[in-house]
Design a binder for these strands. Structure first.
Length: 615
RNA sequence: GGUCUCAUAGCUCAACCGGAUAGAGCAGCUGCCUUCUAAGCAGCAGGUUCCAGGUUCGAGUCCUGGUGGGAUCACCA
């Protein structure tokens, strides 16, 4: 039982003993005492003062006395404006530090026997990964790590969108313009190689469309052009899809390719396999750089036909209904979600059907209790509908479905748009950030004399932490702005700042080893400086925050926490000397540094960030 | 137009689900390296939390109504 729990239950008992009122322990509000006041924990007494019909301060004083009398560790209390501040003894905090030093699993919860699937990344195979994917990947990875720490068996999966019109466009362009080139022959990373042909297709299509617009005998157009309401450009933009489907030569080739693919045409399938293979090689390289991996990949080419049988089952249960044209729908009006198509009139699947089917297959594979989809917030509606359907279908994991919805990454100039070339490429960004780190390390750090491969490793870790921390510190739900020039910083609330604090703890450890400091001596340490006390108090919050982050699926909670610890350690570093003092003090501060280092490392690991030994 | 979502310092973000005087970082200014790594520390300055009401001991947080951004409302994925 933690102190906080103990305080809460004592408050409950106290309220009952003193005033004869029963309260729910959940309703007891405690928090860390703010810096301006003396105390460690604060209890809000307003609710009890209302029930007891006494003045808040009066209740506070009575409760304070009760708690000091009944909980050994609490040795003082004060009341300010209805807030009861409780102080724990120095001995308590010192013992707390000794306890976690002996607990190798501090902050890691016992297995709860539940399995959770985390789906993330899920790229299309027609172009390379970009900054948006990076946010997705970091969130997914981190969510999985946090859930693991909270006791779940977390499986990392993705659905690879490897089929459809987009990849066919790349295939057509490669046939038309490729002249047999390969990633190897052009010395290009596979995903970039394919992306190049996708862009080439789009460019050629645009040209074709333009020529057609200016040609003499245009057919009747489906949309009217009202010059008052739209510009010429907007007018043609509106017709783009229609043109692609009905008049474009390139469009026809791509569509033909798709039909052949669906008909299992041998040549088409083998070209498709080859081109996707190139893309996967490229993706793997990027994933490795980002330090992530997956337990299982699901491919849309396998799953896109799934789900139909489930729809049939649902039809029997009257969850779905069939229209006259034999398309199948679900009525979700009572959930304020409208009617939604789940099967086309020709009997083929739609996106929703696939997702239903895929969820089912995953349940056969893993029997998961929970599933987290890391997908951008533009799909909020889709997942609301999907989850509602799964609930009505009675899926056993329906209550464990969670959409980790995150906001887009914007540039200072506005949205990233692949069509306008304003996309930040993942590989470029990684490379840039490592280069920045190299310059910074050589300027500020003490790495110049290390062997070159160790230097490289440090540059990599520092650069990646700057990038990752910047992204993961923001609450996932919020849109965020990424300024390529300024965003990836190395000072202040950043990854490298936290790494720097860690490197200091590491240095302390090395010196302690050299000086043969005996950590047992720490137990005889007599004092406790404010910055030491504050640090230990924060260390004690770690498990609680891991749980909170797991519950909210929010890595930014951990990111903020790590920063907090690093900051307090930096303060401690400045306030307190570590070596060259009596052996008890030295031992205690070495032990404290060691624990700070341990927590920083495991906290940052939850965010997918590695710590360098030195920098 | 319906639905969802967001709005906090010049900029980028916090505020642990309603708690004390709204906090950090960056940018700006002032100090601190002969001593464990100054990627640091201490300090100054910066706010009508978009607006108007409401709920209550207490509202950035909840409710209503505005304003402004974004998303979504396909037999696309």
């Amino acid at each position: 039982m933690t102190v906080v729990d103990e305080i809460k239950s004592s408050v409950v008992k106290g309220v009952e003993d003193l005033y004869g009122i029963k309260v729910d322990p959940e309703k007891v509000i405690t928090s860390l005492t703010r810096k301006e006041f003396t105390g460690d924990y604060t209890v809000v007494v307003f609710p009890f003062s209302k029930m007891a019909k006494k003045k808040p301060d009066e209740v506070g004083v009575e409760m304070g006395k009760y708690l000091v009398d009944n909980i050994d560790q609490i040795n003082d209390s004060n009341v300010i404006k209805g807030f009861l501040n409780l102080s724990l003894s120095d001995t308590y905090w010192k013992n707390f530090l000794f306890n976690i030093a002996n607990d190798s699993k501090y902050g890691k919860f016992d297995k709860n026997g539940k399995t959770v699937l985390v789906e993330f990344s899920s790229p299309n195979t027609n172009k390379p990964l970009h900054l948006g994917h990076i946010r997705n990947i970091l969130l997914g990875w981190s969510a999985a790590k946090i859930l693991e720490a909270a006791g779940y068996d977390a499986k990392k999966v993705q659905i690879v969108n490897d089929r459809g019109i987009a990849i066919c466009k790349s295939m057509v362009a490669w046939q038309l313009f490729g002249e047999g080139a390969t990633p190897a022959s052009t010395n290009t990373k596979g995903d970039h190689f394919i992306g190049k042909y996708y862009v080439q297709f789009e460019t050629a299509f645009k040209e074709e469309y333009k020529t057609w617009q200016n040609s003499a005998d245009l057919p009747a157009l489906p949309f009217e052009h009202d010059p008052e309401k739209m510009t010429e450009d907007e007018f043609w933009k509106k017709h783009k899809n229609w043109y692609f489907n009905n008049h474009s030569k390139l469009g026809a080739s791509a569509k033909e390719m798709l039909l052949k693919w669906e008909a299992n045409d041998e040549a088409t399938r083998s070209l498709w396999k080859q081109m996707n293979g190139w893309v996967y090689e490229g993706f793997d390289e990027t994933y490795e750089k980002l330090g992530v991996n997956f337990d299982k990949l699901y491919f849309e080419s396998d799953t896109y036909i799934l789900g139909k049988d489930i729809i049939e089952e649902g039809l029997k249960k009257n969850i779905f209904y069939r229209k006259e044209d034999s398309s199948v729908w679900i009525d979700l009006e009572d959930a304020k979600l409208d009617h939604k198509l789940v099967l086309r009139s020709d009997g083929t699947s739609v996106y929703m059907t696939q997702d239903i089917g895929t969820a089912n297959v995953r349940h056969q594979d893993y029997g998961m209790d929970k599933m987290v989809y890391v997908v951008a917030d533009e799909q909020d509606y889709h997942f609301k509908v999907l989850f509602e359907i799964m609930k009505r279908m009675g899926a056993p994991y329906a209550d464990g479905l969670f959409h980790l919805s995150y906001g887009m990454v914007d540039l200072p100039t506005g949205k990233m748009k692949s069509r306008e070339g304003t996309v930040i490429d993942a590989d470029d960004l990684v490379k840039e950030v490592i280069e920045e780190a190299r310059l910074k390390c050589l300027e500020l750090g003490e790495v110049g004399n290390l062997p070159i491969d160790q230097q490289q490793e440090i540059f990599y870790k520092v650069g990646m932490s700057a990038l990752k921390y910047f992204i993961v510190k923001v609450n996932p739900k919020k849109r965020m702005v990424f300024d390529p020039k300024e965003s990836v910083d190395f000072q202040g609330q950043t990854g490298p700042y936290i790494q720097y604090a860690f490197v200091r703890t590491n240095g302390v450890g090395n010196t302690a080893k050299k000086d043969e400091v005996n950590l047992e001596d720490a137990k005889a340490y007599k004092g406790l400086e404010p910055s030491e006390r504050e640090l230990i108090l924060q260390l004690s919050e770690y498990p609680h925050l891991v749980q909170l982050a797991a519950k909210e699926l929010d890595p930014s909670i951990i990111a903020a926490y790590c920063y907090n610890i690093a900051k307090l350690y930096s303060k401690f570093w400045n306030d307190c000397k570590i070596f060259g003092l009596d052996k008890e003090t030295v031992a205690f501060r070495v032990l404290l540094s060691q624990q700070v280092g341990t927590i920083l490392k495991s906290g940052m690991e939850l965010l997918g960030i590695e710590m360098p030994e030195q920098m």
